[in-house]
Structure formats: C-alpha cells, structure tokens
C-alpha cells in the first residue's frame, strides 16, 4: 500500500526538479519557461493578493452555479425522458445531434447576449455539462433491472414511488458518474469562458498576466487552475465512494 504512494511522490519530485533544471541549464529560455522556484515565488505572491482570491471565488461561484443548474436540469430531464419509452424514442436523435455541438460555438452568442458578465460563461458551463449529466442519467435509467421494474409494477406501485424506490437508486451510480464528468467539464469551461470572454475569474487573471507579459504569474495561475481541477476530481471521487458504499456492498452480497 505504501510503495505506490511513495513512488508517486518521487515522480512529482522528479517533475519539479526537471522544471527547475531545464530552464537553468538554458535548454529552454527561462523567459518562456521559468524555473519551478520562480513559479512558486510568483504563486506565493499571488496568494497575498486580494485580486487573486476574488478571482478564485468568482471562478468557483460560476462553476458551482453552472454545475448546479446543469445537474438539476439534466437529472430531471433524464428521468422524465428515461421513464417514458415513447419520449426516449422521439428525443434520441435530437440528443445525439445536439450533444456533439461544441460549446465554444456559443461563445459569440453569449458575448452578444450578456457581454463580459458572468452569465456569458454560465451559458457555456450549463450547455456543456448538461449533456454529460443527461446522457449518463438516460443510460442509468435504461439499465434498471427489468425484473425489479416488473415486480414494482405488479405490486401496484404508483409512478412517483416507482421512480423513488426502483429507478433512482438503480440509476444513482450513473447519475454520480455524470456529475463527476460534468464537474470537470464545467471547470474547464468556467476558466475557458473567463479567458476568452473576459468575465471575472481565474481565466481572466491568466489573460491579464499574459497581456502584461508577467510570465511567472501566468504559470503560477495555470498551476492553480490545475490544482483546482485535481481538488474537484478528488473530492467528487471521495463523495462517490461514500454515497455508493451501499451499492457496492449490495452487489457483493448478491454475488455470494
């Protein structure tokens, strides 16, 4: 158990050391790729700034609001469409068609409608993450055990009860997978929207650092963006393990 953990740490150490050595030896121009030490210094300097923290807060706010809207809408739509077979048949082609439309295609439209305010970025976040949730929920509802469903039906459960007792628990693993995928996509689009549109947040700070030629600060902010992504991913995986503990255990009991 301990060896993988220690090896990972060694890997990170080697990565940081390379980042320190490569610019120092002049293999890469330090003006383009600052050393690890310089980046850490610039990062520390950012941490002491008010602007950085408010930008981070803006990004997190946009991310959570957008993700929240997308999850609620995606789960609601997914269950309604998934439970009614006719609806699923009629919407399948439309979902397949709308889903691959790249969310960035909406950037010009969002800018015209909302300017550089947070709403522009929210449009992108909601559009992109909605499909992630919807598709997973649809898959989850489809994979509900037919025997369980027939049983519930012959016991005369009403539709709302059936959704609550049969469909929802069975689809929950897929719902959570959808939320995990959507959370990552939402963060990418939050920062992308800020970077391209210029709505307030980490992405705009990166764009500002770039136009000011503050290369070290730019790298520092990119590191923050990456760490934010790691944090989002790890926390959702932890939540997944907690929420679905029963699910795995139930399956294991059934197997025995």
């Amino acid at each position: 158990m301990r060896a993988p953990w220690r090896r990972g740490l060694v890997g990170v150490g080697v990565f940081v050391a390379l980042l320190e050595v490569v610019p120092r030896t002049g293999l890469v121009d330090p003006g383009y790729l600052p050393t690890a030490g310089t980046i850490a210094g610039a990062l520390g300097e950012q941490l002491s700034r008010e602007a950085f923290w408010s930008a981070l807060l803006d990004t997190l706010r946009g991310w959570s609001i957008g993700l929240g809207i997308a999850v609620v809408a995606g789960v609601a739509a997914g269950i309604v469409i998934g439970v009614v077979p006719a609806l699923r048949a009629f919407t399948a082609s439309t979902v397949e068609f709308l889903r691959p439309i790249p969310s960035v295609a909406l950037i010009p439209l969002a800018v015209l409608m909302f300017g550089t305010s947070m709403q522009s970025t929210l449009v992108l976040i909601v559009y992109a993450s909605f499909w992630q949730v919807l598709v997973q929920v649809l898959d989850g509802v489809r994979d509900v055990d037919p025997v369980t469903q027939e049983t519930a039906r012959s016991y005369g459960f009403a539709v709302p009860t059936r959704i609550r007792v049969v469909v929802w628990p069975a689809a929950l693993p897929n719902v959570i997978t959808g939320i995990r995928l959507a959370a990552t996509v939402a963060l990418v689009l939050a920062i992308t929207g800020e970077l391209v549109i210029g709505s307030p947040g980490l992405g705009r700070q990166i764009a500002l650092a770039q136009s000011a030629g503050a290369v070290e600060a730019m790298y520092g902010l990119v590191v923050v963006a990456g760490l934010l992504g790691v944090a989002v991913n790890l926390s959702i995986r932890a939540a997944e393990r907690r929420l679905l503990r029963w699910h795995v255990s139930v399956r294991r009991e059934n197997a025995v």
Binding site: G11, V12, G31, L195, Q210, V222, A225, L227
Partner: peptide, 25 residues
Amino acid sequence: QYCEPVFEFLRSIPPPVLVPIIMLF
C-alpha cells in the same frame, strides 16, 4: 505509480489556458 500524480495534475489543467503558454514558445 511514478507517473500517476504528475499525470493527474497535467490532465487537470484546463487545456485552453495552455494557449497563452504555448504562444510563448
């Protein structure tokens, strides 16, 4: 095991923020 944490980090960087960095090079 050596690579996993580094990859986890690099993967989590939203790719569009690399545009300003790669523009430098």
